[in-house]
Structure formats: structure tokens, C-alpha cells
Write a protein that binds this DNA or RNA. Structure first.
Lengths: 342, 342
DNA sequence: CAATGTCATGGTAGCGCTACCATTTTTATC
DNA sequence: GATAAAAATGGTAGCGCTACCATGACATTG
């Protein structure tokens, strides 16, 4: 005859309370909540009423412990403030908000080691799925992902050898398309300006280089990069650097839209006409690009859609309907605007 | 003699495995991990060795179930993509990343009902603390917060009657300071332009109005707002609307920096000189403001710091050292720049 | 109509951990 | 050196839930 410990939420109702009130076994309540089809309509109604009357909410911890799996999506992104990833994350949240799944978000700060550390924390919790940004995991991270025992979706890029599933687009092609657009528009001494040269930016740069070499326009002095975190201010500084090295510069492909905006402002400040003297192309096509003066050409990337699709794929895999296409290339779209309308 | 079920992570080591290997009781392992001071150095070392050898990681679900509290910070923000909240969230993550606490992030989409729904999900999980944006919770939400049984920190604003603790600044004062700055700079027909008029924007507007009335400059036709989500494009449109209503406008205080940027671009587009013909003030002082051409005056708000402080306060309360100051006003800073240098 | 299958429901036994109490060992006190 | 107090350690009993198996009521088959 031990007195009840009455921990836990000052007497929040448990499944047993619901079962008692509904006059059924606890397991039937559990089933009614998780697999309603397996419970007769009568009992289902009774149980539903009891749940509502008591305000019963299942304890996710007890559930996870008993079933050896947590209804959690682990999500790893390199930055929470970079709008690009914020939109991916928003897509993920929006896709998951009405279901039973929670999101566990981790910020890797663009660091492979930090990613490893976070995976080491996430993986043992038996998440329902893992969504990670990029395809350049460290060997340790890759092993953790492979042995996580849940669907894994790598997002943002395409690549040859996914851990499991993949949703993204080709940054190389994006960089090439942007550069080809500048070339076609009549620009010749086209610079590449980039900050925070993460693997995706490197691939954009490679695409730029491929296009420039093909056109016989490549010159290493056209490239200006920095490992510093991207910012509008940095865009201004980098254009100044680029012009100092190469005063005849007549176009720039920017690593991303923040840099492009900085480049635009620097052009205004230096009274360089855009698009006549200098053409500008950004990357991602954030909302501000179309509103800039002049409107800035950019490569629109499907960030939100990547978030949604990654969840859709993971949910399908969880439901046992693993999509036959494990790699989805959502592509990108060149948005030509006045900043390159020579 | 039942055979072990061997669910759970394909035989991940449990606390019992560690205890066996270290030759101690399970509870001692538990203590060594949570309150090392209560275990002798000898055992602590043995246990540490066993933990490392086995690669033991405690199961947070079992822990939460047994101890009736989860090491989780629930965080509710109205938007994941709005840079302002992204920075608050980043501050929270950065403050929590090395401790034992996880973050559970919820997106309320600026909806009180959605906030209620999320609190109903979060509160029963017995989070270690709750951090919510704003002070305008619905009565239901407020009750949920009050009865959550954990420290609660409302962030982003100051206000008279916190649920528990509060970190923020006065949006009213911010709006007034911005407007007074315009008045002092010699502007007279100063408009207010605002999108997504959430409660914080409303208070900025009230501050604007107070300053204008005090100076005898107020005119309701100077105010142009919309409930639409804020964007740079919208900033351009709203300025056009404002000028249509009030062609003599010579200054604008914008609800936020995105709108201000749009206003700036619209001025460029319409060949309105900034700051001579029109002065512009934004709100939040995102990084781009100083890099704009001309650099844009704004009110710098301590977003990241709000995130850090909210966690610090919550951690103190968890540790039983509830700060004597339950309301912290971190203030803001006017950053006067060329866009108002008449 | 017996044999077999299917459905709806329930009982039991944990999941991995910690609260609570009991026990043993060490230290402090007179 | 006896006694009290404190520190160190362990055993037991759950936390709230679900996996697994068992049961009984029907339906299906030849």
C-alpha cells in the first residue's frame, strides 16, 4: 500500500484515467488514439468523449520510451538567421505542424564538427527522420546518419551518392546559368564575388568558372572571395576590392543576394551605372531582389519547397512507401531583371 | 523467464550496462552523471570510464518520464523567417547549446490561436522553461503559461504585468524616439508606414503619434498601414500610396527595416532625393541599413541579446536563483545616418 | 457443423530512468 | 571510544505508455 507519488504535472490525467472513465482497457485507449481503425466506432466515441472531458494529452516521453521511437524530426541547418535556411526550416515546420511530429532543430554554424556533435545527440533519440543540409558530411557524420535507423533526407543540393534521400538543386548549374546569362547579355569581364565560401558556394564558383572558361573569358583575378560571414556591408567591400584588382570589371556574379545588394549599393555610391557600366546577378532571389532599384537579376531557388518535399519524402518512407525516386532535383530559375539588361 | 524484448536502438547500452561494468548500482551511475558531487571521486572515475567505453548516452525520454520534467526549453515565436525573431532564436540556441537543454521551437504565425494550440502541446510536456514572444497572449494562453509550473520569459517588449519574467524594450519609446529624431532633423510632414501591424508595430505607431501630436504635426492622413506581411516590395507600394494621399510628405518612419528599404528604393525609382526631399527611418537596424546608399537611419534593437538574457533568466530561475529583477528593459539605440541628415 | 480465420478487446510485462527510502560507511563531537 | 551526524551507496517501485500475447465473439469455409 504505497501512496501514489503524484509527480508529473500535478495530477494530469493519464491513459488509465481515460480508460477508467470510458470503461475500457488502457490499451484500447492507446489504440483508439493511434490506430482508430482498429477500434469499434462505439468505443472510439466513448473514448473520445472521455479524452475531451479529462483534457487528456498523451505524454510523448512515455510514448517514446515504450515504443522505442520518438515522433521527432531532427533537422540540422548551418544557420538560423540566414534567410535561405530559415525558409527551408519554415517549409519543414509548416509541413509538420498538423501531424504528430515535433521538430528538433540544430544549428551547425557551418561546422562539420558541430554537425557531428549534434548528430551524436540526435541519433540516440531514435528520431522519426533526420533532415540535414548539404552533402558534405564528415565520415563520422555519414556513419551516424547511415546507422540512425530512420529515413534521412539531405537537402539543398543534388549529388551522386545520397545517404538515403536527397532534395535540392545543382549549385554548379546555378552558378553556370547565372554566368552564362551575364555573358549572353554582353558582359565580358565578369567577376565572381563571394563570402562565406561553404561547399555550395564553392560549387557555384565552379559553375561560374566553367562558363567563363568555355567562353574564353576566365581570369583568376576576376575572383574575389572571403571566408567571412556574408553581409551587405561585405558586398560593398568586396566590390571595392574587386575593382581595385580589376578596374575594367563590367559584371559580377554574387555568391548570394546579400552580397549582390551590397554590390548594388556600392555601385550607387561610386556612381557606377547598373546595368550599363556593371551588370549584377545574385543568388537565391530573396524577395528584396525584385524590389531593388534597379531590380536585381538572381537565381531563384526553391527553399521553401525543399523543406516541404523533404518532409513529404520522409513521411512516405516512414509510412513504408519509400519513394522510388530517392533523389529529387527541384531545379532553379533564372530571373533576369534590369540589373543585367544592358 | 521472458526473453528480453531488445527493442530500443538495437541494443544501445543502458544505465544498467554501465552500472554492471563499473561494478556499482544503477542509481549511482545516475547520480554520477547528474550530481557528480554526491559521488566519491573513485566511483566517479570508474563510472566515467565505463560510460566512455560503452559509449553510453542517457535516454532523454526515460529521464523525462522518471523525473517528471523534460530538459526542454519551449520557445514560441511568430515567424521563423523574420530576421528579428531568427536572431532571438539564435541567441537562445547559442546560450543553450553546451548545456543539457534542448529547444522546442514553435511558430505561431502571428496568431493568438496558434499560440494557444502550441502551448497546449508544450505545457503538458513539463518543459524546463517557456520563452514566448510578446505580451499580448490570449487569456487562455496566459492561463496555460501561469500554470505551466516552470519559469516563463516573455520577450521582445516591456510591459506592466509579466506572467513571470520579461526581457525586451519599449516599442512605444522606440517609435517616439525615431519620430522625434525626424522632427529634430527638420522634417515636418512625417508619415508612418507599416505592414503587418502586430501589437509591437501598433505600439511603435502609438509612439509616433505621441511625438507628432506633441509637436503639433499629427495628421491621420500621414499614416499608411496594411495587415499584409511585411516585404521590401510592400515598402515601395506603401510609399506610393502615402505619396498619393499626401504628396507633400517629407519624411517617413517605417514599421521595420524591410519597409524602409522598399521606401528607399521607391525614392530612387521616383528620383526623390534622400535625405533632402524625404527622410527615412527604419526599425531594428538590420545589418543592411548601414550598408545602404545612402545609409539608413534606424533604431537598433537588441534581438540577439534578448535571446541570451531570456535564457540566462530562465536558467537562474531553474537553479532556484530567481532574479530579483523580473523585468529587464534592454533599451534600444537610435542610429542616425545619412537618410535623415538633411 | 467442426475447423479455421478474423476482429475487437484486454492483461501483463516491460521501455530506461530516477524518487524515495533504507542501509552502510565515514567523519565529527563530546 | 561511544554516539550522533553526515556522506556514500544501493534496492525497490514506479513514471505513462505500448509491444506482445491471449481471449472470446463472430464470420467463413468445405
Amino acid at each position: 500500500m504505497t501512496k501514489p507519488r503524484s509527480r508529473r504535472g500535478g495530477g494530469r490525467p493519464t491513459i488509465a484515467d481515460v480508460a477508467r472513465k470510458a470503461g475500457v482497457g488502457a490499451i484500447t485507449v492507446s489504440r483508439a488514439l493511434r490506430e482508430p481503425d482498429r477500434v469499434s466506432q462505439d468505443l472510439r466515441r466513448q473514448i473520445q468523449a472521455a479524452v475531451e472531458e479529462l483534457g487528456y494529452v498523451p505524454d510523448p516521453n512515455a510514448r517514446a520510451l515504450a515504443s522505442a521511437r520518438a515522433d521527432v524530426f531532427g533537422v540540422l541547418v548551418p544557420s538560423l538567421t540566414n534567410n535561405v535556411f530559415a525558409e527551408v526550416v519554415r517549409g519543414i515546420y509548416d509541413s509538420l505542424s498538423d501531424g504528430p511530429f515535433r521538430v528538433q532543430l540544430g544549428n551547425t554554424h557551418y561546422s562539420g564538427l558541430e554537425e557531428e556533435r549534434l548528430l551524436q545527440v540526435f541519433a540516440p533519440q531514435r528520431p522519426a527522420a533526420l533532415i540535414v543540409a548539404g552533402i558534405d558530411q564528415t565520415p563520422t557524420s555519414r556513419k551516424l546518419l547511415e546507422s540512425a535507423g530512420c529515413p534521412v533526407v539531405q537537402v539543398m543540393e543534388t549529388g551522386p551518392d545520397p545517404v538515403d534521400m536527397l532534395v535540392g538543386f545543382s549549385h554548379f548549374d546555378g552558378g553556370r546559368t547565372a554566368t552564362e546569362h551575364l555573358i549572353k547579355s554582353g558582359y565580358r569581364r565578369i567577376g565572381f564575388i563571394g563570402a562565406r565560401m561553404d561547399p555550395r558556394s564553392q560549387r557555384r564558383l565552379a559553375g561560374y568558372r566553367a562558363a567563363m572558361e568555355k567562353a574564353g573569358l576566365f581570369d583568376p583575378r576576376l575572383i574575389t572571395t572571403t571566408p567571412l560571414l556574408s553581409s551587405v556591408t561585405l558586398g560593398r567591400e568586396l566590390l571595392r576590392d574587386a575593382l581595385a584588382k580589376m578596374p575594367a570589371l563590367d559584371g559580377v556574379f554574387c555568391n548570394n543576394d546579400d552580397i549582390a545588394l551590397g554590390v548594388l549599393f556600392e555601385c550607387h555610391s561610386a556612381a557606377l551605372d547598373v546595368p550599363k557600366t556593371i551588370g549584377i546577378v545574385g543568388f537565391n532571389d530573396l524577395e528584396m531582389m525584385q524590389a531593388a532599384f534597379p531590380p536585381l537579376t538572381s537565381i531563384r531557388t526553391p527553399r521553401y519547397e525543399i523543406g516541404r518535399r523533404s518532409v513529404a519524402m520522409a513521411l512516405a518512407a516512414i509510412a513504408g512507401r519509400r519513394p522510388e525516386q530517392r533523389v529529387i532535383d527541384l531545379g532553379f530559375e533564372l530571373k533576369p531583371r534590369e540589373s543585367t539588361a544592358r
